[in-house]
Nucleic acid binder design. Structure first.
Lengths: 340, 340
DNA sequence: ATTTAGAATGAAAACGTATTCACTATATTT
DNA sequence: AAATATAGTGAATACGTTTTCATTCTAAAT
């Protein structure tokens, strides 16, 4: 089953291959009559153009890269769905790279995406000190940071005001009467979690509450690790009455651990998350959380990337967007029970 | 910033372009000395080979396509993560196409994947009557069906014994004492949901229970649609005491609706799902469900696809694997309350 | 009838690599 | 020392398009 090429149609349509190319690309200056012949030949031989060959010469692949720490985290999966769908509508495909939150994987992913000549890259989980990101940006490559940005201010990004979000969450807990509030962090190499942590601390200070090292988990995004950490923390006599987690995924681990200890939420323990994954709004879960407006964020990142790609060269004004967080109060937070 | 090509290194290393290519591809018959020169030049100019150009001639892109109905469904996201990670380890990238469960999107996705010359395609949500799938297979293209297969028996697939799984779920409920069991289906154009439906019916019959049309939801995979359907169903006086849903995602909608109605699970209503997404095992949710062994299934599909791709031509024995389901009993099922 | 402008087409080059084929240097055998 | 085999290298071609440039055709203008 030989591949049908543009030459084959040229032959059966009795025109040159350039002409075939012209009708493929909808050039105006081809006569109706010959256009018809070509189209018929295409139909007859079931020809469809080879994108690889086309990319060779146009220097465009119509393929984007999406680098993500963990596609199985619903926040990323939901964001990815939005981006992919929109990208497809706009004529692009997307290669997803999953880094498992390992920096070297990300560098490697970038390298192979470049080798495959993707037109642009969205990075959803960039480490804040990443050199690769700066390199890409400095080289004039179309790249946009989504969800988490880097310290070097020059790169393009669409993120949330994470610190503000964290403060909103904390304010909510404090106003309910909580004074012992734990924080479940993630790897602070990510600027977004770093900023949330900063928000946590700032809020404590603002409300005159002491910072306790034992009340914070700082480590991998590991369900199990968080689960065990929380279980242990809840066994202490000086246990927190509320826990603020840096992601909904982690918040679920917290709730899981609390359930394992026989604690009722929110009576015995208040929990607030961050992300607002779809499932969090389920009545059965009803997680109080900070909404990232994931649809908007994903769409903005994607569409800006594509516009960067398409007007390569012209007005390359940089994209610096930070969205407003929103507190979603649901059923996992309430006033603390007076512990005697 | 001009692109560095193989010719550039040939020039600085003072060898021919072919020789450079040879060291790139680790050909044995190149002298240590010249190999060293080339490697140094590569290092110096920071050259990295262009995969597009390479694909042109090798006819291999080291890129796979993954077509999925909805990447935001955790079952698919988790499967995708497994496949992507393993693929990357094996030197492949993956383009994800999201069809939103629309058949024409899938046909279109296949077409563009072919145009981009992916080496193989995994289809996670194939409609059971899909012609495209058969076409692909007949054309000798490397394609494997994952999760849901097609009626035409010739295609390669790795799936679950869905009917058996459904029967296991039903048996569990019946043994607990349930007699009024509703079924939340999805679009029956998917063979896997079709088979689960068949299992539901067969189990009813086996246990001498009547089939009631009003007890089955048959429609889109829509959280909201299921939510409202269940709410309404629970208002009837002849309401079911248990609901079996064709996916965990739908089961969550069921639980959501039940919670909305103030019903306790499992006291007032038992719920069984299907898939065993990670989150289902959360103590706070504790969804009784049928495990699909998603890791095994995903890995098998991916690895078989790659082996098909790599030994193109040789022993193309077909892959027909159906895995055994497993009942995961957790906290959402229990004996029915005697309703008087 | 002749020139001229523009429309329509074809020939050829280019994109960056792998690979075949021919050739040269080196080592082995006689 | 000659003949032969083999290791190492280079020149040229192919992959399937788009695009530039030159050319032919057509119709309008003189």
């Amino acid at each position: 089953m030989m591949k049908v090429t543009v030459n084959d149609i040229a032959r059966v349509a009795k025109v040159s291959q350039s002409t075939v190319s012209r009708v493929l690309n909808n050039y105006p200056q081809v006569k109706q009559e010959t256009r018809k012949k070509v189209l018929e030949a295409i139909e007859e031989l079931k020809f469809s153009p080879d994108f690889v060959a086309r990319s060779m010469v146009t220097n465009k692949t119509n393929t984007l890269g999406l680098i993500v720490g963990d596609i199985s985290n619903p926040f990323f999966a939901e964001s990815a769905k939005i981006m992919i769908s929109r990208a497809q509508e706009m004529g692009y495909d997307v290669i997803i790279s999953n880094t498992n939150h390992i920096d070297s994987n990300m560098d490697h992913a970038v390298q192979t995406l470049l080798s495959k000549r993707v037109d642009g890259i969205i990075i959803s989980s960039a480490s804040r000190g990443s050199n690769k990101v700066k390199e890409l940006h400095d080289a004039g490559f179309a790249v946009i940071l989504h969800n988490s940005s880097v310290e070097d201010a020059s790169s393009n990004y669409v993120v949330l005001d994470n610190k503000k979000g964290a403060i909103m969450a904390m304010d909510h807990l404090v106003h309910l009467g909580h004074e012992k509030i734990a924080f479940i962090s993630g790897p602070s190499k990510y600027l977004n979690v770093y900023q949330r942590y900063a928000g946590y601390q700032e809020a404590l200070e603002k409300h005159g509450l002491p910072f306790r090292k034992t009340f914070v988990y700082e480590g991998e995004f590991s369900y199990d690790a968080v689960y065990w950490f929380v279980q242990r923390m809840l066994e202490e006599k000086e246990r927190p009455t509320a826990i603020f987690a840096t992601s909904d995924q982690m918040a679920l681990a917290v709730m899981d651990a609390a359930a394992g200890k026989g604690l009722k939420i929110p009576e015995d323990l208040s929990v607030v998350g961050f992300d607002d994954m779809t499932i969090s709004s389920n009545h059965y879960i009803g997680l109080t959380t900070i909404s990232q407006h994931k649809e908007k964020m994903a769409l903005l990142a994607l569409e800006h990337l594509i516009s960067m790609v398409e007007k390569k060269g012209e007005s390359a004004d940089s994209i610096h967007m930070t969205l407003e967080p929103e507190l979603m109060i649901r059923k996992t937070t309430g006033p603390p029970k007076k512990i005697t």
